[in-house]
Amino acid sequence: MASSSTGTESNVREDIARKLLESSATLSYDPAQEVDWETPLDTDFHGTSPEWSTLYRTSYWDEMTPEQQRALTRQEAASVASTGIWFEMILQQMILRDFYAKDPTDAAFQWALTEIADECRHSIMFARGAEKLKAPAYHPRRVVVELGRVFKTVAFGEAAYAAILVAEEVLDVMQRDWMRDDRVVPFVRTINNIHVVEESRHMKFAREETLERLEGSSWLRRQINALVISIASYAIVTSMVSHKVYANAGLDTKRAVREAKANEHYKSMMRSSCSGLMEFLSSAGLLTKASTFVYKRANLI
């Protein structure tokens, strides 16, 4: 019976991978051609939906001029893009390591390479987008960069794929709002649309891989990996908006950081963006008491 079950799961995985490959062949974008890189930046637009700003509904936000508010959201959009590049590089290395020396005729192997190709294009797209937003290179704190270096080297199985899923799902919810918002600068809306469409396939693959790697796992393994995933998630979401965005938008950094940390509206937006993700982690047995504590610290629950 075990052999039959394994064979059925393998067939399901193969079918999903083939469908993702077919979808990619039918609907994929070339950002170099699809995004308007030539038109100068129009500073009458935001970089994100204002409601997603870390300062929205704070007293500081109310004191800012519309120009300052738009400048801040443009810097925040660039910071999110830079964090996306950082994690996409981690993601690519984990997938390459996972599929190293595996059967290249397998549809999952071919999909993995397709996903890596997508991520390479996305990283270039985000980099050009941040440059056009007139933002500097934002990076996570040094300790987070080094933790990411360790994580990409040692994470495997469900820990790797569930962490990938967290990063993709949080960004997906944000970008779905931004790509529909007429207040957001048009080229950023195009970038968001491209990313949402192509990342939907990546999220499907990450969910399936997470569930497959969990098959037959012990209680202890789930406990350990649930905590690892939550810590990785904390590092990702707390790195999305660099504190440096405030100075680059002409604001008082100390006051902005203080008010952003206390901003209940932003915390609520983050929690709502993760409701579906938390349901998935719970159903997979990856939402433990220890991991829930970390997710609450990250304002994801």
Rank of each mutant, 00 (worst) to 15 (best):
S5Y: 11
S79C: 04
K244F: 04
S239C: 03
M270K: 10
S239M: 06
F156N: 14
D36P: 07
A226W: 02
A256N: 06
I301K: 06
A135E: 08
A78K: 05
S218D: 11
M240Y: 12
K254S: 12
A249G: 01
F109L: 03
S242P: 05
A77S: 13
G84L: 01
S123C: 13
A256W: 11
V166F: 05
S268P: 00
H122Q: 13
P40Q: 03
V173E: 15
T26M: 09
A101R: 14
M125Y: 13
L41T: 10
G84D: 12
I301H: 09
M64G: 00
G148M: 05
G216N: 00
L96S: 10
V241M: 09
T43K: 09
I16K: 08
S239T: 08
I124H: 09
E63P: 02
R57C: 10
I116K: 00
I301S: 04
Y138V: 00
A17L: 11
A137G: 09
H195G: 04
K102E: 14
P136D: 14
H195E: 04
K152G: 07
P50N: 05
V228I: 11
M179F: 08
L27S: 13
G285P: 02
G157Q: 01
E88M: 07
R258G: 06
Y295L: 13
V184P: 06
W61P: 05
W178Y: 07
P136Q: 14
S3V: 15
H265V: 06
E131M: 10
E215T: 00
L281N: 03
N193F: 15
R221K: 08
